[in-house]
Amino acid sequence: MDINSLQDPDKRIALMRQNMGNMTKIVPWARETGFEVTAIEKGHIWGRQPFSEHLIGDPEDRVIHGGVITTLLDNLSGMACASALSEFRFVATLDLRIDYMRPAETECDIIGEAECYHLTRSVAFCRAWAYHETREKLIATAQGAFAINQPRSISSFGAGA
């Protein structure tokens, strides 16, 4: 990866798009739940959570557990915030509120969408949605605040510190 291109917002988005298929593969818990990033705009990210047996939270109605939606929306929101910044920074979730409109349907993929709608120097604000097919079929909405971490030396990126 060309580290310098991370500092240019447009190049960074382009790089994120290029690596879309790998963005969740390098995150173990995202690989475990199996969601993928499907589209990237500056400050706006879409993803898809496929239905899977091992994510079921209720053995009777066979619906995916809410925690899987937490994982999807938390991760997409963090990415949306990071993509909205003019410089490359790590972000960390401060808080995340999730409201459930209705349970997900069994055997159906869940679409996730996250939008960073405001930035300050130290905090990014994000809202997110989980739905089937279109936003008309809402499963959950989320709202979160993310801390924008102070710059670390670029050489420490991925150094396993």
Binding site: W29, V68, T70, D74
Partner: peptide, 16 residues
């Protein structure tokens, strides 16, 4: 894990 370089638990795993 959610972040390998920080060896941090994923917020989604903690939330779940």
């Amino acid at each position: 894990i959610g972040n390998f370089s920080l060896k941090a638990l994923h917020g989604g795993a903690i939330g779940t």
